[in-house]
Design a protein around this nucleic acid. Structure first.
Length: 421
RNA sequence: CGGGGAAUGGUGUAAUGGCAGCAUACAUCCUUUGGGAGGAUGCAGUCUGGGUUCAAAUCCCAGUUCCCCGACCA
């Protein structure tokens, strides 16, 4: 992509309206735009990151046999009355011209359960795993911290349907592992703690995936021995010790919840009367699990974790581009030609590249914007590099600047990507 | 929902009752080209409604929006 053609534009000044780091940097660098509190537009750069996160999640969901669906956002009242959740305060409600009542989806159990029920009546047809990646709406009393708590947000929600607890438990473990892979691929594998949380009426625990960072709004108690987190509502029940190893030396940390997994069991199959016939023709309740990841929140979290005073530092697999090519104009016309050639060569090799071809920007401005946008690898072509038949290479997360021979560049790239993945 | 703060060109700011100014961005031109370059010209603003006053960005009342703390949060 030519940077001269990029629709969004970086801003030098920090938007005073925003206090959270993720909102400040993402807005300044031109990834997102705020429409109102808790509601954001994704601009080309931000949308690219979002799509990358989405594709990571999609591939890991496919790996555990889940099938993608797309459910409506507009929901009828009667399904929510059936589970007694029509009164749920965070649900947006609206009326048609004929006074019919609807809500906007803030979660989809009430939609997916009757849907799956239509097709499933025998143990032979279970289990079923379906997920979607979709907008959700929650009437938050206080939207805050940029993408971390939004009124409208994109969520992946997976629902699983099983004939017995054993099958549910087994799949629950699979999802847990898939989630760890997702977070690892998004670059936050190191900072993530699987955390015990309240399981509600039907199970003792649910699990959250908590990313440790000072800007987190949740408090978790960490057992460093087990690499297990314990939620604050659980820790009192457990008398301030790790439920796994009884360790009493727990670290208290701030964290952001990046995902959660939950055994619903009969909670929704009961009110909808979702039963199946087992081998002996006996009627049994279907058991359910649900598993969520907020995509925008994940993007915001990654910015909270990976940034410095100059800007964002994207992990390579979710960076909007892999290479940021910067041309520094000089008197030598060959500079532009060389840069254009490299740009085309890399595009042919399917390397995603942002090429700063702008002729009216000073070198300093280009460097500052590159640091702000945060693409992992910066390549500079200038008078200096040209005379030496070299390219200048700088990794966003390092200080060091290296010159390498132009010929050796493609080899370098291979190594770089291998190392980074 | 309780408490606190804020609202001036696209963005960041100044003006405390008396001519709305500066920076940046944008447009045109000249110069410049390795860490947000210089000059010239131009475009662009007081959140909304009411009130006080000869005169309101400024004071008063009401509302709206945004941010922060707390409560809430499958």
């Amino acid at each position: 992509m030519l940077q001269s053609q990029l629709f969004s534009k970086a801003q030098k000044k920090v938007p005073q309206e925003e206090k959270s780091i993720n909102a400040q940097l993402l807005i300044r660098a031109g990834f997102i735009d705020k429409l109102m509190a808790g509601v954001y537009s994704y601009l080309p750069l931000g949308f690219k990151v979002l799509k990358k996160i989405e594709n990571i999640i999609r591939s890991e969901m496919d790996n555990i046999g889940a099938q993608e669906v797309f459910l409506p956002v507009l929901h009828p009242k009667h399904l929510w009355q059936q589970t007694n959740r029509w009164r749920y305060p965070e649900m947006f409600k609206l009326k048609s011209r004929l006074n019919k009542e609807y809500s906007l989806g803030w979660t989809h159990e009430e939609i997916i359960t009757p849907l799956v029920q239509k097709f499933i009546s025998s143990y032979k047809e279970l289990p079923v795993y379906v997920y979607q990646i979709q907008d959700k709406f929650r009437d938050e009393l206080r939207a805050k911290a940029g993408l971390l708590r939004a009124t409208e947000f994109i969520m992946k929600d997976l629902y699983s349907f099983h004939q017995d607890e054993e099958d549910l438990d087994e799949y629950y473990q699979k999802v847990k592992n898939a989630y760890l892979k997702i977070f690892k691929r998004c670059g936050i594998g190191e900072g993530i703690y699987l955390t015990l949380a309240s399981g509600g009426t039907f199970s003792k625990y649910s699990h959250e995936f908590q990313v440790i960072t000072p800007s987190g709004e949740d408090t978790v108690y960490l057992c460093l021995k087990c690499k297990l987190g314990i939620n604050k509502e659980i820790i009192k029940e457990e008398k301030f010790r790790c439920p796994q190893c009884e360790n009493k030396k727990l670290e208290i940390k701030k964290a952001i919840e990046a995902g959660n997994i939950f055994k619903l069991k009969e909670k929704f199959s009961q009110p909808f009367g979702f039963f199946f016939k087992d081998e002996r023709g006996k009627e049994k309740s279907v058991l359910m699990g649900c598993y969520g990841i907020g995509l925008g929140r994940l993007m915001g979290t990654i910015v909270e974790v990976y940034h410095d005073e100059k800007g964002i530092i994207w992990p390579i697999e979710i960076s909007p581009f892999q290479v940021h090519l910067i041309e520094i104009r000089g008197k030598n016309l060959k500079i532009k030609k060389t840069a254009q050639k490299l740009y085309k060569d890399l595009e042919k090799k399917k390397i995603e590249i942002l090429y700063d071809d702008r002729i009216d920007k000073s070198p300093g401005e280009k460097f500052a914007e590159a640091d702000l946008i945060g693409i992992p690898l910066r390549v500079v072509i200038s008078e200096r590099t040209l005379t030496k038949n070299c390219l200048e290479i700088k990794e966003r997360k390092k200080q060091q600047i290296n010159l390498i021979k132009t010929k050796e560049f493609s080899q370098f790239l291979k190594k770089f990507f291998k190392k980074e993945y």
